[in-house]
Nucleic acid binder design. Sequence first.
DNA 1: CTTGACTCTGACGTTACGTCAGGGTTTACG
DNA 2: CGTAAACCCTGACGTAACGTCAGAGTCAAG
Lengths: 250, 250
Amino acid sequence: MTAQDIRAWKIGQLAAETGLTVRALHHYDHLGLVQPSARTDSGYRLYAESDVERLYRVLALRQLGLPLDAIGRVLDGQTSIEELLDAHREYLDRQLVALRTLRAQVAIVAAAGRTGEAASVTHFLELIRKVITVDDTIKQYFSEEQLAQLAERRATLGEPAIAEVQAAWPRLIAAVQAAVDAGVDPASAQAQELAAEWMGLLQQFHGGDEGLRGSLYRMYAENAEQIEAQHGGPSPAVMDFIKAANAARN
Amino acid sequence: MTAQDIRAWKIGQLAAETGLTVRALHHYDHLGLVQPSARTDSGYRLYAESDVERLYRVLALRQLGLPLDAIGRVLDGQTSIEELLDAHREYLDRQLVALRTLRAQVAIVAAAGRTGEAASVTHFLELIRKVITVDDTIKQYFSEEQLAQLAERRATLGEPAIAEVQAAWPRLIAAVQAAVDAGVDPASAQAQELAAEWMGLLQQFHGGDEGLRGSLYRMYAENAEQIEAQHGGPSPAVMDFIKAANAARN
DNA sequence: CTTGACTCTGACGTTACGTCAGGGTTTACG
DNA sequence: CGTAAACCCTGACGTAACGTCAGAGTCAAG
């Protein structure tokens, strides 16, 4: 290297420096993402400082999970970073929602396997179908934003609070059922207390949001039998009791 | 179809019934995952009931995000579902951790774009590198299980509690710095109160877990300057003050 | 008998490279 | 100065799960 030579990297050097493979650099060259600004007479790639700089920019953006073609468009000024990042964040949000539900579903099925609930492959498949049906049903009634909203609410409340609410429902439903069986008057103080707890648990779910409340009610109304039979939901008698108690309050 | 014909589906019928495309069924056939047990003379695929049954099993497992080859191994009895689901759950957990950090990083950078903090592309890239460096550093000191543990703690506490702790740190650091500047005696009641709050915030992070505490301390010790300069961490004087206060307590 | 709907078998494209294969180039060492 | 090791080159196939033609045969209805 003589004195007038500007700094240049052969592909192996650059690969070692960046932690990439030579193949990856070939790939970027092929895509036109990072192309060496010179070659030796024998065809060896020579990366100049500006090329290396561009490569490091690519690597930074790649770390955020952006696709290479999008990175190329940003570096060539065809797209603004702001736009790209916003779109990417939304994309990741959707991925996150999907991945979370998937992992929850797999966890349910795997757990059933360990407790011996699902003995045969057939049992597993039935459970899987059930779990998926639930998800499909929910997706029918709640929009994407609403699901994100619910996820946010869960994160805000924290897991213990969620678990508490989930444990409270069967208890409360059983208590109301007992009150119905005992012929308790929906206008009585006892019934009012049950109804208040009921509305409180519902409140925990929708947080006062009209949209969430409406979607939940519609989902329940149109799937009441399923929910009662398969998921321990309230019977029509229980629902009527709560409605009557609420009506009596006013 | 004569009386002795058993039920059979042509590929288009089966596709319409399952919501798949013909191409997907071709693909499954090619992989040996679901192969029609008969063909017409002219080579049309004829799926028998057993084939359709197998296809529905494939679809159920596919809904859980399992790769087709793994599904094939399960249906052929080469792997147990339990094993596969457990492995898959762990895989999804890892994906979730990665996706969550990624989305957090992108959110940070995108937010900086909206607040005008990052004006030029260069600023963006600097911020990205900073965010990624933080993540890399954390990954050096915390094992995968520890990170999962931390994620669980965050979920347990809920977002508001986390936000509170994060907001409390700069306040407390400033308060301690003020005490140092004012020459407050580390043994004094005021210092003891600050130290108690300090240890309380730390407790919020590690929850009493020795491993987390140790990892955090090591990370701080080996990156104190970075943390102070780049992330508003405590100065050595502040740290000494807290140490002295803790020593005085005993 | 013709036309439209259906089916067949390749084969390429997608994403970001990994992994050879076959063949030149450079460099260090004896 | 010769040679072997190390390095570089250009294809080209493989990955996951299909989507999307292309070109050609088959079937059912009018």
